[in-house]
Simulated scan of single mutants.
Amino acid sequence: MSTLRATGRLPGARWAPSPNFGPRPEGAPISLLVVHNISLPPGQFGGPEIEDFFCNRLDHRAHPYFREIEGMQVSAHALIRRDGELVQFVSLLDRAWHAGRSSFRGEQECNDFSIGIELEGTDDLAYTEAQYRRLADTGELIMTAWPAITPERMTGHCDIAPGRKTDPGPAFDWSHFRGLLADRRTEGECD
């Protein structure tokens, strides 16, 4: 069994534990990776607000938008910042609260069987190369630990909650990401 599968902790990630998680249902296989985006305040990057939000520490008086999300308790398994830094909030073995009401190929409640990764960004602003590379590296580790997750079982929040969510948005280049994943898979076969 891989270390990742045993511990649920991503190597190289800074640990920032969120209280917003729970156990996965008994026997639920981890079989989906969901890509999201987030920026707090909207369109602004680099501050502590995303971590504060996922850890229930956000000062809702600090920005008018924060009043709209006051009381929400959400999380993701991990966040990839604009510079490629990986921050982990919830063990991959646990159920993070990232997908909400959702469905993937007829399977309901995606939080039960998915891993959620947030990219610091917006739907319409290009993501950084550092983010794509970190996401591909992380995706490869996750696919190795949980082989039920394949490139075909990596999707956007918009795809599992259409009409309700739009992220990671049109700015996310799925073919570039999948190309980086394929490169890593090919490199692994040559080792």
Rank of each mutant, 00 (worst) to 15 (best):
G47E: 10
W174P: 00
S102F: 14
E26D: 15
F53A: 00
W146E: 07
E107L: 12
W146K: 07
I115W: 09
M154S: 04
F177D: 00
I160P: 00
D159S: 10
R134T: 15
L119G: 00
S31M: 10
F89D: 01
A161Q: 08
P64H: 13
E120G: 00
A96G: 05
W97A: 08
A78K: 02
P17E: 12
L93Q: 11
R14M: 05
Q108T: 13
L141G: 00
G169K: 10
F45W: 08
L181E: 05
A171L: 14
P25Y: 13
T166R: 13
P41W: 14
A126V: 09
E140D: 11
T122V: 12
S103P: 00
R24D: 03
K165Y: 07
T144R: 14
A126E: 13
T155V: 15
A130D: 08
A76C: 08
M72F: 14
C55M: 08
E187M: 10
A148L: 15
F104V: 02
R134N: 01
G163P: 02
H157V: 06
R184M: 09
G169A: 06
R178D: 03
G100V: 07
A182W: 11
V87I: 15
S2Q: 12
Q88R: 05
G169S: 05
I50R: 00
A96K: 01
I142T: 02
G71T: 06
F113C: 01
M1W: 11
R185Y: 08
F21V: 03
Q73M: 14
A182Y: 12
P168I: 04
M1R: 09
H77M: 05
V35N: 01
S18R: 02
T155Q: 06
L32K: 05
H77Y: 07
G106A: 03
E187R: 15
T7G: 08
F113D: 00
G121A: 05
R178N: 05
G169H: 12
R184S: 03
I50P: 00
D137Q: 15
P25G: 03
D191K: 12
F89L: 07
A161P: 02
G139N: 01
G156H: 05
E68M: 12
A136Q: 11
P42T: 09
L119H: 01
G71C: 06
G163W: 13
A13P: 03
S31W: 07
K165S: 05
R14C: 03
D52Q: 15
G43E: 13
E70T: 07
D167T: 14
I142V: 13
L79R: 02
P29Q: 08
E107Q: 15
D59F: 10
A136K: 09
S91F: 09
E85Q: 15
N56E: 13
S175W: 09
A126F: 09
R82V: 13
I80M: 04
V74L: 15
R81L: 06
P17I: 07
F45S: 02
G71K: 09
